[in-house]
């Protein structure tokens, strides 16, 4: 099969075209029978990259053929340009729609679902929807799926979303485009949480504080903690995929490494998914996220010293004995 994919589709922001779902669905079926060539071709690459515990249930070639006006670049058939990574834990209610939007983000895309501790058939649904599914029986813990998904990703751009939040492809595309087109390494959701109040949620506070410590107060409360965000392969390799399991640590590493970290578009994830926010208010998770920020700071201190570069040159401490 001599299929053609895009490297870039400047005009292919023409999500409209890609959303011609009946066609692409049809094509998906044709190109990706369970026993199809695509699966076999991929297996070489993937078997090396994947753990026994997290085997792929199915794989699927990039959907929908390019439309006329777009720049076409030949890419090896099995290497997608964009990898969408979706950690999933019991997200049966939303996962199918989330995957559908993920596939519509770019013509050359793979969707990786890291299902962990799911007992509601999420993994099976994801697999049916065409995603590469890495399945773990037990829960991996908060955000570990992102790191594992990133390790398995083959794209040049890695887009991270959650399985419980349906964000239309049209809103996800700017993150991918920021990396492909604008050379941004880390495209953040420009969402700082509700801050027009006297007192904010502890996670919102921690994000703002970390950005101050990173000497990027302009980032306000934006962070790799919030989805959606997209990273270039270069960014992932610079910070290390494993850091993505502790998003504030990944965030700190990205900024300190001098990567281009830019908030690109605001998606109010607070409003989008109230149940999730309610869950995040539960103290233990809140504590973990605050702890993540401390872990990030600890990394910075090890790298930059006890005061992280904020020196007190004029303080004559010897008088204070």
């Amino acid at each position: 099969m001599d299929r053609v994919a895009f490297v870039r589709s400047r005009f292919a922001t023409s999500g409209r075209k890609r959303q011609a779902r009946p066609t692409s669905q049809g094509m998906r079926r044709r190109l990706n029978p369970r026993s199809g060539q695509a699966n076999i071709r991929r297996s070489k690459r993937t078997s090396a990259a994947l753990p026994a515990a997290g085997r792929f249930k199915s794989a699927r070639p990039a959907p929908s053929r390019p439309a006329g006006s777009e720049v076409r670049v030949k890419r090896p058939d099995s290497v997608p340009l964009v990898s969408v990574i979706i950690p999933v834990m019991n997200e049966r209610r939303t996962i199918r729609r989330v995957i559908r939007e993920a596939f519509a983000v770019h013509p050359s895309v793979e969707v990786i679902v890291v299902a962990n501790g799911s007992k509601d058939g999420s993994a099976r649904i994801a697999s049916q929807a065409g995603a590469r599914v890495m399945e773990y029986g037990a829960p991996l813990g908060h955000d570990v799926g992102r790191a594992i998904g990133a390790q398995a990703a083959r794209g040049e751009v890695l887009l991270f979303i959650d399985g419980d939040m349906v964000i239309p492809a049209g809103q996800l595309r700017p993150f991918v485009q920021a990396v492909i087109r604008d050379g941004i390494d880390v495209a953040l959701n420009d969402y700082s949480g509700p801050t027009a109040k006297p007192d904010v949620h502890s996670v919102v506070l921690a994000k703002h504080a970390l950005n101050v410590l990173l000497e990027r107060p302009d980032l306000e409360g934006t962070s790799l903690t919030a989805i959606p965000h997209a990273l270039s392969r270069f960014a992932v390799e610079t910070i290390g995929a494993e850091a993505l399991a502790v998003p504030p640590l990944a965030h700190a590493k990205a900024v300190q490494s001098g990567l281009r970290v830019v908030p690109v578009r605001r998606i109010n994830v607070g409003k989008l998914n109230p149940p999730r926010i309610a869950r995040e208010r539960v103290k233990p998770l809140e504590n973990i996220i605050v702890g993540d920020h401390l872990e990030a700071l600890d990394w910075m201190i090890n790298r930059r010293g006890t005061r992280c570069g904020f020196e007190d040159r004029y303080r004559k401490r010897h008088y204070a004995r």
């Binding site: 090396a48 990259a49 994947l50 753990p51 026994a52 515990a53 997290g54 890495m134 773990y136 037990a138 829960p139 991996l140 813990g141 908060h142 955000d143 570990v144 790191a147 594992i148 390790q151 398995a152 995929a241 494993e242 399991a245 502790v246 233990p284 504590n287 973990i288 605050v290 702890g291 993540d292 401390l294 872990e295 600890d298």
Partner: peptide, 22 residues
């Protein structure tokens, strides 16, 4: 400790290393 009292007991970080090795 780096995380003070905010321990991270739920993350299975070892799964990441294992995933990379394989």
């Amino acid at each position: 400790g780096a995380r003070l009292s905010k321990a991270d007991t739920s993350r299975r970080r070892e799964a990441i290393a294992r995933s990379r090795q394989l």
